[in-house]
Design a protein around this nucleic acid. Structure first.
Lengths: 283, 283
DNA sequence: TACGGAGTCAATAATTTATGCTCTTTACTT
DNA sequence: AAGTAAAGAGCATAAATTATTGACTCCGTA
């Protein structure tokens, strides 16, 4: 996997110094050839050891290994860009916006996939399976509610009983009914909403399983959860970032959904439901 | 010039030791990553200084520079394809699932883009701009409601007054308040819902602008609309198709959204709103 | 045979990278 | 609110890698 994608994906979780290194690398990947770890440190006004530790933390053997990998990535990217530019030639100008956006979505998706091991995604699916004798609770505010709502609808189609809340007070009331192995999925981009944290804490006290869905930044909600799904989506443009977040998160959820669909029984249920919906529109 | 080509071209004029280095590099370029100059020397039974001198003689700053260049060359030669295949090998099954799904989404997006000329997308954005003295109405049922809701929220962030309905009766009541140039966006995957068609018809009678968002199939709703956005998303698997539909549609809407964002005034409004939301969570 | 040039290597100098340790900050607990 | 654990950053230094030097050898030639 491209080291640059990896750096970007972890950027949100980094300390200040690390983030400066990351930004420098992302901006100046082509120039890295002529930088020793010491020179890079000087350029950023930090210590050489920080650079080395940064490299190791990302999983490279050391600084030269990082440098080598980025060199490869840049070389590959240069090739790719040429090909992409050729394709551009045949496009209308205003399509470029959509094209660009899709590319950024793809990057966000890749970075997000890196952050969520297959085990984790499967873990969420299993938790939901285990819960299906009980219930799956979902909650989120604002844009997060959209995801909660959409996922709740999908689960319902699979015959999994869901309780979707967009209201903290109502959810608080529901907590009383929580049984062991019930699952609560909390959607909160920044994971800082006090009400959601409180609900999460109560829920865990009832021995329910808590799944958090947040940005890949350290945050209190995430710290509480049994399983955490995290999303990487970064862009300087404030109007773009939410789109990337939404897309990457959606894809993550789609992954869980497809795992659930692998169960034949649920799939039958889905087909039956779809048919029922179909006939509801016809007559 | 590629360092490997250069090495090959000069090989014939080299001394015995140099030629052994050259041959090793040409044969094992991909393995070079893990060789220091000393290890390379050991592998060939020669001295480390010979390796360094070799590098310099070829015009590189030193051994690390040679190594870096060969790394680039190999990456370029692999051209991504091999790398992707290699990466596949190490993937878990569920990663492959996610990977596959993303590829299908990309296809759906492309197909959908082809169906919606840039003019059309821009037309929707303009209609919304024109409406912003009045109102933008949005409606959709079931999964379609998710999109209506999400888009309504985005418009609201841009300071565009929206009326979101998930209830045909309430929407019917609202139709009375429609003014010329108001916009109604109807989300309906199959475009067959009688209630929605009826609402669309009433709306047009009030001289509002009707935008339909449906699948790319002939359908009554689409026939009514002033502007039609259409989505292409096909898959044999019934559990996959909705995901593709959702993704392609979302991207289409994102395109409209970004066009609206280009207006500086709206963008300021968005930034102000985002900040306001941010501070609401902090204290 | 003596000389010169090219090539190699061992030794070592110079540079670069990695690590241990300490100090500071942060966040969490009681 | 104070204490404490954990993490991060930098300094000093150890370890490694790389570059250079100088001596030796092997040829070909005068």
């Amino acid at each position: 996997m491209s080291p640059l994608v990896k750096i970007r994906s972890e950027r949100d979780q980094m300390s200040a110094v690390e983030r400066r290194i990351a930004d420098f690398l992302l901006d100046n990947a082509q120039l890295l050839r002529d930088y020793s770890s010491q020179q890079l440190a000087n350029a950023l006004g930090i210590s050489q050891s920080s650079v080395v530790k940064f490299s190791q933390k990302l999983g490279f053997k050391g600084y030269p290994d990082l440098k080598f990998s980025i060199g490869e990535a840049v070389a590959r990217a240069d090739n790719g860009d040429d090909a992409q530019l050729a394709a551009h030639g045949t496009q209308h100008a205003s399509d470029a916006l959509a094209d660009q956006l899709w590319r950024r979505k793809s990057e966000a998706e890749q970075a997000t996939r890196l952050l969520n091991p297959a085990d984790t995604v499967a873990g969420v699916a299993n938790a939901i399976r285990a819960a299906s004798h009980g219930k799956v609770f979902l909650i989120g505010f604002g844009e997060d509610d959209i995801h909660a709502r959409g996922f709740a609808m999908k689960l319902a189609l699979l015959g999994i009983p869901t309780v979707h809340n967009f209201d903290a007070a109502r959810m608080a009331a529901n907590v009383a009914t929580v049984a062991r192995d019930d699952v609560l999925m909390v959607f909160s981009e920044h994971g800082r909403h006090p009400a959601l944290c409180k609900i999460g804490r109560w829920f865990r006290e009832q021995h329910g399983r808590l799944v958090s869905i947040t940005r890949h930044t350290p945050n209190p909600l995430r710290a509480l959860a049994d399983i955490t799904l995290v999303v990487s989506a970064h862009d300087e443009a404030a109007e773009l970032e939410p789109l990337l977040y939404q897309s990457a998160l959606q894809h993550l959820l789609d992954g869980v959904y497809l795992l659930l669909c692998e169960d034949p029984e649920r799939r039958d249920c889905l087909h039956a439901n779809l048919e029922r919906i179909q006939t509801m529109l016809e007559p």
